[in-house]
Amino acid sequence: MSTPYAEVIGDPIAQSKSPTIHNLWIGRLGLEAEYRACHVKGDGLAEYLARRREDLAWRGCNVTMPHKQAVIPLIDRLDPLAQRIGAVNTILREADGSLTGFNTDAGGFLEPLRAELAKTHYFRMARILGTGGAARAIVAALADQNMVLVLAGRDPAKARALLDELAPGGEHHAIDIAHFAAPGDFAFDDREGCFDLVVNASPLGMAGQPPLLFDMGHVPPGSIVYDIVTHPHDTPLLLSARAAGFATLDGLNMLIGQAAEAFEKFFGASPPRADGDEELRHLLLG
């Protein structure tokens, strides 16, 4: 029988770090398996999935941009979270050849926050920058953690619609992202017993993208600043936040966390992470 394998698909795909992540874990566990990258264009999605359905060695695939929504009509069922978010980043081939779509971005994003979220807080607020596909998963994930959300985008109406769709019923706020560019001199009240989070869920600040204009005066004392951008690893937002004394989380947290969920689905084993992903991070940053 052919070696079991999974892969990541997208257009483009050469930049994907998924093969590095999954193949390190496969090697550490000594699995007879492979993880590949496959360049699939939009007009080739249907043919790709039709071929893979018939391949008994294919365990499934991760889905990256721009296919996270386009694959939905081509698969047989959606996990409830993926259906709610409206995006699929993991497809699993079931034993009968049917395809199930999942979204592991939400869980991957939350993974480094679990310890803090397990605590009891008087109040929780997250300021989220961006209204694209990644923001959808993050809004859904944080709404489920009883957080008040402030969602900022270039189009506040789009941000409002996203909140109404994914986090209905909450007292959430939609604002113009330009609000955070202006100097902030708000006198924050006592934050003891509160949990504050600032998330860049946009591509702003990524290499080749426009900068993220953000003034640290908008960040409450004791906040965690989380940037999901992975290139560069230390974004200007994270550097500014650390210089101002805030705790930070980089984009590799979400990238590795979502991969860990997908790995278990593909290969039926927990990835080896006892070293706190130190070797993996070294490889990804090398």
Rank of each mutant, 00 (worst) to 15 (best):
R136I: 07
F267H: 11
M125V: 14
A181C: 10
H173Y: 12
T230K: 01
G276S: 05
F109C: 08
M147V: 07
V229T: 04
L117G: 00
A46T: 14
M1C: 09
G44W: 05
L56P: 15
L78G: 05
D185L: 13
H282F: 12
V229C: 03
G107R: 13
T90W: 09
L99Y: 03
F186G: 10
V139T: 04
T131D: 05
L24H: 12
Q15A: 07
P12H: 01
F267N: 11
M1R: 12
D79I: 08
M1Q: 11
D155K: 00
F102T: 12
I138M: 04
E54P: 06
A182R: 13
A178C: 10
A274P: 06
A152T: 06
A241G: 13
E47H: 11
V8Q: 09
S270G: 10
E171D: 15
P73A: 06
W58K: 03
Y122V: 13
L239R: 15
F180S: 03
L249D: 08
L166G: 15
G133D: 09
A87K: 02
G42Y: 05
P211K: 07
G268D: 15
L280C: 06
R53T: 13
I75Y: 07
I175H: 01
A243D: 15
E111L: 11
L249V: 13
L129S: 03
S2A: 15
P183D: 01
D79C: 07
S16C: 08
A46P: 12
R28L: 12
R36K: 14
H121T: 10
L29N: 06
P232C: 08
V219R: 06
L162M: 08
L213S: 14
L24G: 10
G132M: 04
K68C: 08
T20A: 14
W58L: 05
A106P: 09
G97K: 04
A181T: 06
G208T: 14
P4G: 05
L163S: 04
R191W: 13
P272A: 08
E34G: 11
C38F: 04
G130Y: 00
F214P: 09
G42P: 07
D215N: 05
T235D: 09
S18R: 07
L284C: 10
F180Y: 04
I177A: 00
W25T: 09
L166T: 10
L197W: 01
L92D: 08
L204D: 09
M125C: 15
N200I: 09
M147A: 01
S98T: 15
S202H: 03
F186I: 14
A87E: 12
Q258W: 02
R154S: 01
I91T: 14
P210H: 05
V148D: 14
L24A: 14
C194Q: 15
G108W: 03
P203A: 08
N103V: 03
A181K: 02
G208A: 12
V219M: 07
E32M: 07
L92V: 15
P156C: 03
L142S: 05
P80D: 11
L149G: 03
L238A: 02
I228K: 01
I91G: 14
K68I: 04
L74S: 10
L31P: 14
L212E: 13
D55F: 01
A259N: 13
F263S: 03
D250V: 04
E278K: 05
L151F: 04
G108T: 13
I175P: 03
D176A: 01
L56M: 11
D155F: 01
L117Y: 00
K158W: 02
R93C: 11
G205V: 02
P220R: 05
